[in-house]
Amino acid sequence: MNIDVTINGESRTIETEGHRRLLDVLREELGLVGTKEGCGEGECGACTVLLNGEPVNSCLVPVGQLQGASLTTIEGMAGSESLHIIQDTLIRYGGAQCGICTPGVALCAKWALEKEPDASKERLRELLAGNICRCTGYQAIVDAIVAAQESAPETSLKDAKEPGDE
């Protein structure tokens, strides 16, 4: 079947079988390998993408469901020049170690802050709980998201809080 979809702002038509996992189509057909497979059963969140603005496990979505949808993968998160502020704070606070969960974490965090800009730390942890990270103990990721949250929206990256600023 032909699936018309907007991926990272670009309209595309994908010709494939509708039952296939979105994850496989992204990685194998579209070369968008920034989306990672950690478990294949919706447990780890490494394959998280934003589908019509909401976080989904791309290993659980049959690609046929994307007809007319809008999709953001990690490749579409940064601007052409600059990183998204969450990507920036993830680096500076040590929120990325091995990096395999990072694309999913970054996208889910972007959604969480857009959905609930004033979310408490505890609430942020709840919203991110579908993304498993085995390296960081989560603290540095939480700190990074909070730092991004505390920087006013639309601020340039230079204004973002530095680790250690209090």
């Binding site: 390998v33 920034g34 989306t35 490749e75 940064a78 680096i91 500076r92 990096g99 694309p103 680790p163």
Partner: peptide, 21 residues
């Protein structure tokens, strides 16, 4: 000093290439 990770940029952009990639 807390120098930002040298591999951080590739990891947050999803451009780091793991074996399955």
């Amino acid at each position: 000093k807390g120098l930002p990770r040298v591999d951080g940029d590739a990891k947050v952009r999803g451009t780091a290439r793991y074996v399955d990639d």
